[in-house]
Amino acid sequence: MNIRKLLVLAGLGLAAVGTYFGLFVAPPERHMGDVQRIMYVHVPSAWIAMLLYTLAFGFAIALLWSGRQKWDDLMVGAIEVGVVLNALLLVQGSLWGRATWGVWWDWDVRLTTSLVMAILFAGVLVLRRMAPNEERRSQWSAVATVVAFIDVPLVYFCVRWWRSLHQIQSSPDTVDPAMVLPLRLNSFGLLFLALAWMLWRAAIERSSRRASEVPLPTRVAIEESAHA
């Protein structure tokens, strides 16, 4: 409980300062102008979403290895927060694309990979809801998480090659130190917030799991009343 509050406070503080610097202090980018300020939320979202998926992969391996349910709680937390950030990433990317390329969507490597990634991990959450019982649920989601995570680099390479026939990637890497600071602050801020939410989600999963474990006397009573 306490660590979560601490993480939220630190995260909110860092993100607030970072956003202030990003919006009002950092200079506009040389080519993209003020639009580039989207980067200060966009890039952290991407980093933290990837990090959460990686954590989820680790939790999935740990769950399959040890069979302990606590890994399932953390795994669902990581995936759920990851999918939320992933969805944000797509919206921010689309806005950025509209402002710089003039289109809402472009079949760009990173944009396309993150769309596939979002659908893959959202699929894991859907599979969870369908599972017949608790043990199946945790093992199925771990299996689906491992399978989905391995797919991400493959999708990335595929889309890159698929695209490279049309256009060469252009990356305006003119990074001003004044741009690094808000990026770093926002990244750590979002990291702390995301970790706090992941732990929160895990705690919810744990307590709802406990609640669904009906104690034995109650179950006997239910069965008896069913027979009567």
């Binding site: 596939v116 893959l120 699929g123 599979l127 369908m130 199946r136 797919d151 493959l154 595929c158 698929w162």
Partner: peptide
């Protein structure tokens, strides 16, 4: 995936939902 979803009532939805995004590299 079919081994998992074959237990479900909604298997006809679940299998393509899980499989199709996964096989994007194969498709491409």
């Amino acid at each position: 995936y079919a081994a998992m979803t074959s237990r479900l009532k909604s298997q006809d939805v679940a299998l393509p939902l899980l499989l199709f995004p996964l096989v994007v590299p194969v498709l491409l």
